[in-house]
């Protein structure tokens, strides 16, 4: 088989298309076994979300319009979370070109979350019990994290690995759009587009070259893999 070039996974978020429906959050939680912690815990700042929508209000009171910005782990090329981990639980994956959270290494110092400028990392403060039928809904492809473990968006690496293994078994390359994280799959407005940034013809590469592109907190030099497309309509900043 021909030598494979390593993929450089990227995500494009088109803010013009995002309606703030939060379907991505639900899909993410179900795909990745992210527990629902309940209102009280959220009020304590212990919410567990791998993706969230930040809501902004535009304009003065009667004439306000909301704008939404889904924020997940930006999979930085130069990630602030990585050098601070004392046990190498937060490491860079050379193969997938994403940041990993290795659950079985994590000892819960929470340095990585404190150093993340995007607040993308969340901490399991407790073991969250699932009500009985819900245990059957756990995704067997994803580890159920224990108490005291840091976690974050992985670009649904289980789907990437599974997709690549499937493509290799069939003796072909991965097709553009074949692998999709749960949020991308769930987005009804196609505001999220996922793909291989190293392929200049992929849909995500073409969108990432758009003139509306920007990265979150670009000045920090974190080299995020998530590109945002500025909204240019009546709503959106």
């Amino acid at each position: 088989m021909a030598e494979e070039r390593p993929a450089k996974w990227g995500l494009v978020v088109d803010l013009d298309r995002c309606t703030g429906c939060n379907a991505c959050i639900v899909a993410c939680a179900l795909e990745n076994n992210v527990p629902f912690v309940g209102e009280d815990e959220v009020a304590y700042g212990r919410a567990l979300y791998w993706i969230r929508t930040q809501r902004y209000w535009e304009g003065e009171y009667p004439e306000v319009t909301p704008t939404f910005q889904p924020v997940m782990c930006q999979q930085c090329g130069n990630a602030p979370c990585e050098p601070v981990c004392p046990v190498y639980a937060s490491v860079h994956s050379e193969e997938e070109q994403i940041n990993l959270a290795v659950y079985n290494r994590c000892v819960g110092t929470r340095y990585c979350a404190n150093n993340c400028p995007y607040f993308a990392r969340v901490f399991n403060w407790f073991d969250y019990e699932l009500p009985e039928p819900m245990r059957s809904y756990l995704n067997p492809d994803v580890t159920v994290r224990r108490r005291g473990v840091m976690e974050k968006c992985t670009f649904c690496v289980q789907r990437i690995v599974r997709g690549r293994q499937k493509a290799r078994a069939e003796g072909r390359e991965l097709r553009d759009g074949e692998v999709q994280p749960a949020c991308v799959q769930a987005c009804p407005a196609e505001a999220l587009v996922f793909g291989d940034l190293s392929d200049p013809e992929s849909r995500v590469s073409q969108l990432a070259r758009s003139q509306r592109r920007y990265h979150l907190l670009e000045a920090l030099g974190t080299l995020p893999r998530v590109t945002y497309l500025k909204g240019v309509g009546n709503h959106g900043g």
Binding site: E3, V91, S93, E95, E96, V157
Partner: peptide, 15 residues
């Protein structure tokens, strides 16, 4: 060696 880079990646087995 090229395969070992891929096969020693944490995300090969842990996610």
């Amino acid at each position: 060696p090229n395969d070992f880079v891929r096969l020693s990646d944490c995300a090969t087995c842990h996610y």
